[in-house]
Write a protein that binds this DNA or RNA. Structure first.
Lengths: 352, 352
DNA sequence: CGCAGCATTGGAAGCGCTTGCGGACCGGTG
DNA sequence: CACCGGTCCGCAAGCGCTTCCAATGCTGCG
C-alpha cells in the first residue's frame, strides 16, 4: 500500500477523467459532450466524432453514480435466483449474462433461495433504487411479492418459466412432459410412475406442468392415473433416489418412471442399480433438462434450451430498456424442447 | 403513465422519500439528518432518535447513487467468474453471495470465460468505477491482467485457488491430489493413470497441483511415473470419457485412475461401463470435488468445501472494505479437503 | 433580399447526499 | 463575570452528469 512509485501520481483510479475533461479536450461544453456520448440527436457528426476521440484518449468512463443521479439509467439489472449452484440456474445465468453484456448492462445477483432469504429480499428490497430492471429466474412470484416488485418501478422479466403478469421466456413444461410420457407410452408402458419435486419456496412458475402432463398423457392413452404412482420428493438426486424407492415399494411397481428432471432421474437410477434392477430392461427412466451429466449416464431425457432462455430474457430486458415493447402485451416466449433418446428407456419387460 | 394522482406527486416508486423529507419531518437540517443516520458523533441522542423515527416512518432508503457521488463507497463488488454454470463456480458464487449479503454488499457478476470474453473484460474493464472490490474465482491472473486489475484501484481477493499477490482462500490442490493418490496406493495400485484437464484460459490458479501430486505420490511410493499414464483432456464429462479411452488403449492400461475432478471421473466411468469393464473390480476411479452427482454415481472422491471458500472470500472482502487487514501480508487461507470413500475404488484385481 | 425555421451548442439548474466551516449555546474556569 | 473549550447543528459547496431553455448561425423559401 505504499507504492506510489511512478512519477508520484497514483495509478489512474485516483482521478478518472470526468465529462468535463472530455469536453474541454474536445473543445465543447459538457452539455454537448454528454449529448455526443449519449447518441442524442442534434449533435454535428464532426463534433460527435471529436468528443468520441477525446473520450477515447482519456479512457473516459461515465460515473454510473452521477449518471443515475442526474436521471439516467443505472445500467444494471437485478437477477433474482433461487439456487445459483444448480445447473439449470447456472445455465440461465450464463445466457443472461451474455445478452446483458452485449447490451452493456451489468448483472447484479440476488439470491432468493430459502424462505427467509426470500422474505428478506422482498422485505428489504436491496435492489431498490439500484437497477433498471429485474429478471426473475424460474420461480413463481407471489401476490404480495408482485406488489413489492412493482414498487421498484422497473421492468420485470421472467426467465425459465412462465408468468401471468410479466413478459417471460421459458419452455412449455406441460408439452415437455407430454413428450416424455408419450415416448414411454409409445414404447408400450402402461404403468408409469412419476417422481415430482416439492415446490418449496414456490419454485417454478408452472409447478404442475410436468405432473399434469403425466396425468393427461395417461388419460389420453385410456389409462387411469393411479395416485400411488405419483410421488413427490425434495429436489435433487437424493430426492429422486427416495422417490424411486417408494415406487419400488408398491405392490405393483411401475415399469417406467418419468422424473421431474435429470438429477431426480439420476437419483432414481441409482436406487434401481442398488436394488439390482437393470435399466432399462427392468424399468425405464426418463427425465427432463438434458443436464450434461445425463449424457454421461446415458439417460433418456427431454432437452430444453436453458442457456437460450436466459439469453432471450436478457434481450427482452435490453429491448425493454431501449423503450421497445413498451406497450405490447407481456409476451410469453416458449422455446422448443425435444426428446433425446439414450439408453434408459425401452419397451417394458424387454431389453433393447 | 398518467396516474399523477395524489397531490400531483407520482406513486411511491416514482419519488421515494429523500433525505430532505426525513430532515423536514424530524425538524432538522439535511446535514444533521445525514449525520444522525450515518452514526456520526456530535449529534444529540434525542435528535438522532427523532431522525431515525422519521426515516422509519417514511420508509427512507438513501439513494446509493447520491451517497456514492458524494464520496461514499459503491457498496458493490465485482465477481469474475469463468463458467457460472459449472457446479464448482456455482457453489463458489452461492457462498460468496451469502457473505456479501451479510455485509450488505451487492454482487455484480462478470463472466470471463473464453479467451475473447476474458480479453474483452480486461481490455474494457467494465467494472471500472463501479465496485469497491473484486473477487477472482479460481483462475490465474496473468501479469498484464494483474496490472489492469490494479488500475481499478480496489481490493482484490481470490477464491477457489491460490494467488501469489492477492489474499486468497482455496484448498491445497497438491494435498488433495495426494489424498487421492495415497488412497489408491494404499489399496495396492501400482499402475495409476491420471486424467488431467487442459488449462485453457489459464484456469485454476494452481494448475499443476493435482498433476504434481500424482507424480509425487508415485515417486514417494518408489514407482516411476510413466508419461503415457498421464493424459490431458478438455474439461468435462466428455473429456473424461475420452481420456479414459486413451488410457484403455495403452498396451498395459492402468488399474486405477485419478481424475482431475468428479465430472471428468464420471466420464471415465462411462467409458469403462461401455467397454464392459467393472468399476471398481476391473479398474478403480477417483475424482476430486464431491460433486452432488458424484454421490449418486457412488464415486469415491476427495471432497473440498467449495461454498465455504466462497463464503470466506466474501468475508475477507467485507473485512478489507471495513479497513481491516489493510497492512497485513496477503493471507492465503487453505481449507481442508477429505477423502470420501464410496464404491469406485478397491484393491487392484479384486472386488470389494 | 428578408425572415421563418431548424440544426447546434452553451448556460445553468438540479439529482440526493456528505462534509468542511463556522455560528449558537452551555457549563466550567480563572 | 469575561472567556475557553466543547457540543450541536445549519449553511453551502460540491460529487459528475443530464437536460430544459435560450442563444447562435445557417439554410431555404416567398
Amino acid at each position: 500500500m505504499t507504492e506510489d512509485t511512478q512519477s508520484g501520481r497514483r495509478a489512474a483510479p485516483a482521478s478518472p477523467a470526468t465529462l468535463d475533461d472530455v469536453a474541454r479536450r474536445a473543445g465543447v461544453s459538457p452539455a454537448t459532450a454528454s449529448r455526443a456520448l449519449g447518441d442524442h440527436p442534434h449533435v454535428a457528426v464532426a463534433t460527435r466524432a471529436r468528443v468520441r476521440e477525446a473520450a477515447e484518449a482519456l479512457d473516459y468512463v461515465a460515473s454510473p453514480e452521477a449518471t443515475r443521479l442526474a436521471g439516467g439509467p443505472t445500467g444494471r439489472v437485478a437477477v433474482l435466483v433461487p439456487h445459483p449452484a444448480r445447473w439449470f440456474f447456472g445455465e440461465l445465468i450464463e445466457g443472461l449474462e451474455a445478452a446483458l453484456r452485449a447490451a452493456d448492462l451489468d448483472l447484479v445477483l440476488f439470491r432468493v433461495g430459502g424462505p427467509e432469504e426470500r422474505a428478506a429480499f422482498f422485505d428489504r428490497l436491496p435492489a431498490r433504487r439500484k437497477v433498471d430492471a429485474v429478471v426473475v429466474l424460474a420461480f413463481a412470484v407471489a401476490e404480495d411479492e408482485h406488489d413489492r416488485l412493482a414498487s421498484l418501478g422497473v421492468d420485470i422479466v421472467v426467465a425459465g418459466g412462465r408468468a401471468a403478469s410479466y413478459p417471460s421466456v421459458g419452455v412449455d413444461d406441460h408439452g415437455a412432459g407430454r413428450q416424455a410420457m408419450d415416448h414411454l407410452i409409445h414404447l408400450g408402458h402402461r404403468r408409469i410412475g412419476m417422481i415430482a419435486v416439492e415446490n418449496t419456496g414456490r419454485l417454478a412458475p408452472d409447478p404442475d406442468g410436468r405432473t399434469s402432463a403425466w396425468r393427461a398423457a395417461l388419460g389420453d392413452a385410456g389409462i387411469a392415473p393411479a395416485d400411488e404412482l405419483l410421488v413427490t420428493v425434495p429436489w435433487g438426486g437424493e430426492g429422486g433416489a427416495d422417490g424411486m424407492a417408494r415406487l419400488l415399494g408398491l405392490r405393483t411397481p411401475p415399469t417406467a418412471v418419468f422424473a421431474h428432471d435429470d438429477e431426480t432421474a439420476l437419483g432414481a437410477v441409482r436406487t434401481l442399480r442398488r436394488a439390482g434392477l437393470r435399466v432399462p430392461e427392468d424399468l425405464s427412466v426418463i427425465g427432463v433438462d438434458d443436464h450434461p451429466l445425463a449424457a454421461l449416464a446415458d439417460l433418456t431425457t427431454v432437452a430444453q434450451p436453458v442457456r437460450e432462455q436466459g439469453r432471450r430474457a436478457g434481450e427482452l430486458v435490453a429491448a425493454g430498456l431501449r423503450g421497445e415493447l413498451r406497450e405490447r402485451v407481456p409476451p410469453a416466449e416458449l422455446l422448443p424442447t425435444r426428446l433425446v433418446l439414450r439408453r434408459t428407456t425401452s419397451p417394458p419387460g424387454a431389453p433393447r
